[in-house]
Amino acid sequence: MYLLHGKNITCGYDTVDILTECTVGVKKGEIASIVGPNGAGKSTAMKSIFGLLKIRLGKIFLDNEDITNLLPQERVLKGMGYVPQTNNIFPTLSVQENLEMGAFIQHEDFSDILDYVYDLFPVLKEKRNQQAGELSGGQRQQVAVGRALMTKPKVLMLDEPSAGVSPIVMESLFQKIVEIAQQGTAVLMVEQNAKQALEISDLGFVLNQGRNLYTDTGKALLLNKDVRQAFLGG
């Protein structure tokens, strides 16, 4: 049973459908990746699940609750965290302030979560009074992920977390994602680097032209000959 489940989603911009009856989801404590070629509708799937894009057909469930008609902010309250691909930090705010803004809607004391995020990303604690915009690309991604974690989400959605960072940084970032999932937070992500993403994923969704092409465990997809040839470069 999926914790977060986008069921048969059809949506797009204006009259053009980008997604057609597309289904994606992630189970508790697991990592699921959406992969596919450019223009397959990966980011669109993320945006529609988070409510940034209105869907025409289909339903979205979180913990068996229908959240199709909720605003993005309301979904945050229900336990979803979202990290956009670009512009995902407040550049002139300090690192700590970025994290505080992540917990803006929480009125109770959030020092324990702050400690959790700092434990997860020690470098952020070190640079907590520095402006987030001055950090390196990888550190900025950490701020962005940390900000989304501040509401203790049940599901964390990452749109291309490795965009614009070096392979080494990407590897450590993926390591952190695994740690996050091990703590019980489900992670649903979209990735350009399909191979690396599938390696850490429990479940993978291969999209092509807005439709589900393959759905299987990460390992199985990596072993699938067709998938390897078409999307993983052999």
Binding site: Q73, V76, P84, P91, L93, E100, M101
Partner: peptide, 22 residues
């Protein structure tokens, strides 16, 4: 103050501020 910080956050990145519930 929390309000002051959220004001700076809003001026930094409106979209993200909205997502954060500001």
């Amino acid at each position: 103050t929390k309000t002051g910080k959220s004001m700076r956050a809003y001026s930094d990145n409106q979209e993200l501020a909205l997502l954060s519930g500001i």
